[in-house]
């Protein structure tokens, strides 16, 4: 049996191995993904993003528990950074959620960014698709701890939750562009700390400054204490409300189409680069270009035009 057949058959090891092959960019993984693709598109994908130490992993642990109470199967993709110097990584999100390790209705996978920017790993969408094909009802994607500009999660998740904590800055931070624009739900975690009410108020004020179209989704601010499980029910209700909104407003279809387009564009970009770059390196053309650049007899722009002119794409 192929890995894909075993995944559809419920084989956990096969699923884990396929995710590894995807992450290690093995050619064989592409065929397995092709076979799984018709079986995807059923899961509800929930993204959690926010700064390091905001309590994202602890919240994921609680969210998993809440969805398990509803008897839903839950997948988790937890992303942590790769060292830019050694290529190694410490993936520590699991510490907060390993109580679910033995629950056969939960599958948790840690991914390292492996050089990708934007708060995600290149493999995220494909790993989510494997979990989708495994039959997971809800898939929670936890990004790396982000700063202000890592917003790739929006093109992966149906619902994006931005997790903040008290004390990170004043209300000017709250009106800046970036991650605070992408939340469908805002969470003020560690709400037992000083300043939580103020942070929640500033976020609410920021959200109320928007002039949404009639019928558009209005993000709310939910206060939680992840470590004690406070506010989780309200948070999950908010996720469900957003999911309903997506379904009823037709927005879901738009999201799915954007997501499909992105997966196609990303795959095309990777494959085109690998194919063209591999070919010119093989043929010695790449070295000629580098020599030309050193002598200033060519420039990067003309070199690329010439490489592309040698291939027909129409």
């Amino acid at each position: 049996m192929t890995l894909a057949e075993r995944v559809l058959d419920g084989d956990i090891r096969a699923a884990a191995r396929l995710m590894r092959d995807i992450d290690d960019r093995m050619k064989s993984a592409v065929n397995e993904l092709k076979a799984l693709y018709p079986h995807t598109g059923n899961a509800y994908i929930l993204g959690l993003t926010g700064p390091p130490g905001a309590g994202k992993s602890t919240l994921v642990d609680q969210i998993v528990a809440a969805y398990r109470k509803k008897d839903l199967l839950v997948g988790v993709v937890a992303i942590d950074p790769t060292s830019p110097f050694t290529g190694g990584a410490i993936l520590g999100d699991r510490i907060r959620m390993n109580r679910h390790a033995e629950d056969s209705g939960v599958f948790i996978r840690s991914l390292a960014t492996r050089g990708a920017l934007g708060g995600m790993s290149r493999s995220t969408m494909d790993v989510v698709n494997v979990m989708d094909a495994m039959g997971m009802d809800v898939i929670v994607v936890e990004t790396v701890g982000v700063g202000q500009d890592e917003v790739d999660i929006v093109s992966t998740a149906h619902t994006t939750a931005v997790v903040m904590v008290p004390g990170l800055g004043d209300d000017i931070q709250a009106i800046k562009a970036g991650i605070l624009e992408i939340g469908d739900v805002f969470v003020v975690n560690k709400a037992d700390r000083d300043g939580a009410d103020r942070t929640a108020r500033e976020l609410t004020t920021m959200l109320e400054m928007q002039h949404p179209e009639p019928g558009a989704w209005l993000p709310h601010v939910v206060k939680t204490e992840g470590a004690r499980g406070v506010g989780i029910e309200a948070l999950v209700e908010e996720f469900e409300a957003h999911r309903e909104y997506l379904k009823n407003s037709g927005h879901l279809q738009r999201l799915i189409e954007e997501r499909n387009a992105k997966l196609f564009a990303d795959t095309l970009r990777d494959e085109l680069f690998d194919t063209v770059f591999g070919a010119i390196r093989e043929s010695g053309r790449y070295q000629q270009i580098l020599d030309g650049l050193r002598e200033r007899s060519t420039d990067p722009y003309s070199a690329v035009e010439q490489v592309l002119a040698a291939h027909a794409f129409s």
Partner: peptide
């Protein structure tokens, strides 16, 4: 930390793990 610096991907599960939790996590993480 030493494994990270050697270029490995380390899945750190922390304290108080049962053998069953360790094995389940190891399988899911391949």
């Amino acid at each position: 930390r030493a494994f990270r610096d050697a270029g490995f991907e380390v899945i750190y599960t922390g304290l108080h793990q049962t053998p069953e939790q360790i094995v389940a996590a190891s399988i899911q993480e391949d």
